[in-house]
């Protein structure tokens, strides 16, 4: 089996969090992640930061905060072109609904409202149609104590159940505000096991689903449209006879 690539797509840096993107990246790399997305809240003054260092990628992202559903759609349109990962700050019934109904949203973060888990069959169906991933922000479990954590666990458990039934993509993130809020991928999977996510779901939620989000927002060079891609013309000439299959597979795999 190929080595899995792990991603944490909801990490906050200065001014949202306490550390700079390179500080967060250094620890995430040490923990074995292949990349993180810096998703600061849209209502703070921060530009999406994006860089690559020694095989570790930091993706530009944003977590859109809005109290009003129609304003949210406007903000999504504004940010979509500039970021690789577009997260909506959930937690309000109307915002949750608006987020899962918008195809341009990648992740609905912490949908739990003060009253309930924030996800129902209607929202789950929309999320599945529009391919919006539901986030399980594990900081609620490792940072929370007592009643708060109990609620988080039971809401997460309910959301896993609903997401499983409606085939909604699930994603686990640290929602870190400091580098000490990061956890290694295996620890994240173990924490996800606490609320009933099985092993394969947890692996997908931290590797293949985030990788899919990145791939669809960051087309490889030569990408023309879905399914059509220019493969390096020079390579084609010399490798034509040797291994044409590999080239085709690569082109197909990126969709």
């Amino acid at each position: 089996m190929a080595r899995l690539q792990f991603y944490d797509l909801n990490v906050h840096s200065i001014p949202d969090g306490k550390n700079t993107p390179p500080e967060m990246a250094a620890l995430a790399k040490h923990f074995g992640y292949a990349g993180i997305a810096i998703t600061n809240h849209s209502n703070t003054e921060s530009k999406p930061s994006e860089f690559e260092a020694n095989g570790f990628e930091v993706f530009g992202g944003v977590e859109i905060v809005s109290k009003n559903a129609s304003k949210l759609h406007g903000l999504i349109g504004k940010y979509r072109k500039n970021v690789d990962v577009l997260v909506v700050h959930g937690g309000d019934e109307n915002i949750n609904r608006a987020a899962v109904e918008n195809k341009n949203v990648d992740i609905l973060a912490h949908p739990m409202t003060p009253k309930d888990s924030g996800l129902n069959h209607v929202l789950a169906r929309s999320a599945c149609e529009n391919n919006v991933a539901i986030e399980f922000n594990l900081d609620a479990i490792f940072k929370g104590r007592g009643g708060r954590r109990v609620h988080a666990l039971s809401y997460f458990r309910k959301n896993v159940e609903i997401a499983r039934k409606f085939d909604v993509p699930m994603i686990i993130t640290s929602n870190a505000a400091s580098r000490f809020d990061l956890r290694a991928p295996r620890e994240m999977m173990a924490l996800a096991g606490l609320f009933g996510m099985d092993k394969n779901e947890a692996i997908a939620a931290i590797s293949t689903i985030p990788a899919g989000i990145i791939a669809r927002n960051r087309p490889r060079s030569g990408f023309i449209r879905e399914g059509v891609e220019v493969i390096d013309a020079d390579d084609m000439d010399c490798d034509m006879n040797s291994e044409p299959d590999n080239e085709l597979k690569e082109a197909g795999g990126s969709n």
Binding site: K143, D181, R183, E187, A190, L191, G193
Partner: peptide
């Protein structure tokens, strides 16, 4: 796995 999760809750 449970031990991993429990140890991960140290902040």
């Amino acid at each position: 796995e449970q031990t991993r999760a429990a140890v991960a809750t140290i902040t």
